[in-house]
Design a protein around this nucleic acid. Structure first.
Lengths: 364, 364
DNA sequence: CTGAAAGCGCTTACAG
DNA sequence: CTGAAAGCGCTTACAG
């Protein structure tokens, strides 16, 4: 296999190959095929013909090199296995593909080191824009690299969450209001001790939900019990199971209702509840975040706080595309969409029997 | 905004910037930073220092241009909102990221035109490899472009399905065997009329399942009733609903059991069954493809044929990476993983009451 | 309308 | 070990 200067037959044809065939300069050939500059219809026709014969396809890398743009958007999300994120990814892809852009998808698993590594590699790839669900919540914790990368080196939109102190536009939904409404719903049903299964407290999305939860309690004169809020650290099914299990072990002031802060955590919670032989909603009311196709088919159909995930993704992508294609600065928007409480059957009025199953006395 | 030759302050620093600062050639500077060629430890140190000061990050596009590789894999799947595909995407990303590769994700929605458009654009981007779940099943239907692209212009691995007549390695699971086992299970429970909710008959995955289903019937002396096989065309929830609805409308030889050939179709089927007030499994047994976290929490917990989606994705990616990094040809493997029937509670022995609800008489 | 030449930011023989 | 130069495959002023 000689790596000689001669055109390797393995290589796809280049503009030069086409140019030689039609006996024109690469410049003219490029103009015919690339759709830029002036070109006579006749020669254009000839070039197109030759290109087809050679099965020529322009090299986007070379073009990107010259134009200094890649028509690629980087997507940094928690985990594409979470329907909330896959919906955001799909929405983004749908949106940017209209502009001829592609997406590179990266998963952080909510790990700041992974996020940093991905951000770095996406920068090296010179993506034209970035949509990220950041794992860090505070610019003091943000590494220098991330700080002067997001929004400065490359147009960036945050989704679902933000990093405080960094001026980057964001599209998310009103977690505090959603949690307030969910908590209020439980309070109206007579629940006073409401456990919270958090994925990772430090995410501003989670934080907002906890804030809304506390505010709802305080607004009816109840002081939030911090011990009812258990951080799973892990944001997946396993974490949800562990946190719920932990919460159910306590002997005093057991919760009569649970807030599971995402749609993976709730599966873990359901597993733990089943194992403890607690019936939903008779023994335990349950609300989770993010609606999904099957939520209505579960036993019982789940009461959820729904987030407009598709809209979050498409709005973020639209913002980004506008800024990129018009070569303007991103507007410093903080879009906050509404969350919607969908009451199904996993929540019910508190019954006097709650908690007695395991012999615990409610003391308050 | 003068677009002069002068270095624009907006632009990220280049190798030349670093070289100027340390008063070395770009060649040497590149060797220090790029990890290629010989370089003295002392100068390397100096260069690294300068690079850090300038916040230099190598331009992967330029490197790719020279090295003729992008370290990017194209992923063409049906729809990332389908957990089966998002699992494959996640597995692929996990695998290729170990090699410093990224993935560009494209959705076809099982539309051959979309697939073609994506394939074309990924080729122009000169991805180093391709993992695709093809929408077409037969090379006679495959466009010329696709035919001489997949596996010829770029290393390709098919997942979940194949295109017959095109020599491209594939990783899928044994659909015929899985369907055979599922059908056999239903036959053992006394079911004889088993409806099939297909997403799109032309996909080889679907085709394999139908073949297994028919073989199981014939092996017990039953002739398959083609009218029980309804193609939703649409592979999503909506399609599943429509096809099931159609099947339930028939007056004669109503099915007593249903095979829903993917995990989106089954949701539609459940919706249709609920609407028709048919109870699973009392009035209708149900088996679907692809297990998912919540399948066990549905009412009733679903009997499923599970596919090793993560393994499919990681094996395909591993094959591809091996070929790319070792610069060898892909081995012409047709990996077929085992599918597993997981019996839960959506299937039960046929009851004499089946079908009577709507007043239909079973005639056979 | 067409062409010659420079340049995007790297890497890689080839010299020294 | 270091440097000068060519080249990856395009696009873009600048001439003609």
């Amino acid at each position: 296999m000689s790596q000689s200067r001669q055109r390797d037959q393995e290589r796809p044809p280049t503009l030069e190959d086409v140019a030689q065939r039609v006996k024109l300069s690469v410049a003219t050939t490029g103009r015919a095929l690339g759709g830029y500059g002036r070109i006579s219809p006749a020669t254009k026709e000839r070039v197109l013909q030759a290109a087809k014969e050679l099965n020529y396809h322009p090299n986007a890398i070379a073009r990107g090199m010259k134009e200094r743009r890649t028509r690629t958007i980087g997507l940094i999300v928690g985990n594409i296995l979470n329907p909330f994120f896959s919906t955001i990814v799909r929405a983004s892809e749908d949106t940017v593909s209209h502009y001829g852009f592609n997406v590179i998808v990266c998963n952080t698993d909510e790990n700041p080191e992974k996020e940093l590594a991905h951000a770095k590699i996406l920068f090296e790839r010179r993506v034209d824009g970035l949509i990220v669900a950041p794992t860090i919540f505070d610019n003091r914790r943000a590494s220098e690299v991330v700080k002067d990368y997001y929004g400065k080196q490359v147009p960036t939109v945050f989704v679902d969450r933000i990093i405080r102190g960094i001026m980057v536009p964001s599209v998310s939904s009103d977690n505090a209001a959603g949690a307030y409404e969910a908590t209020q719903h439980l309070l109206e049903l007579g629940h006073k001790r409401i456990g919270v299964i958090v994925g990772k407290c430090s995410l501003t999305s989670m934080e907002g939900r906890i804030a809304g939860y506390k505010r709802a309690l305080r607004d009816v004169g109840l002081e939030p019990d911090e011990t009812l809020i258990t951080d799973a650290i892990d944001v997946g099914v396993r974490g949800g199971y562990a946190a719920t299990h932990e919460l159910l072990k306590r002997q005093q002031n057991k919760p009569t209702a649970l807030l599971a802060l995402n749609n993976l955590l709730v599966v873990g919670a359901l597993n733990a509840l089943k194992e403890a032989e607690l019936h939903v909603p008779k023994d335990m009311s349950l609300i989770c975040w993010d609606d999904f196709e099957l939520a209505a088919h579960l036993t019982p159909p789940l009461t959820v706080v729904d987030q407009p995930a598709y809209s979050i993704g498409s709005l973020a992508a639209e913002q980004l595309m506008k800024a990129i294609t018009q070569n303007t600065k991103l507007e410093p928007l903080e879009v906050s969409l509404k969350q919607q409480l969908i009451v199904r059957q996993s929540t019910s009025r508190i019954s006097s029997s709650v908690g007695s199953k395991k012999g615990a006395r409610t003391k308050r």
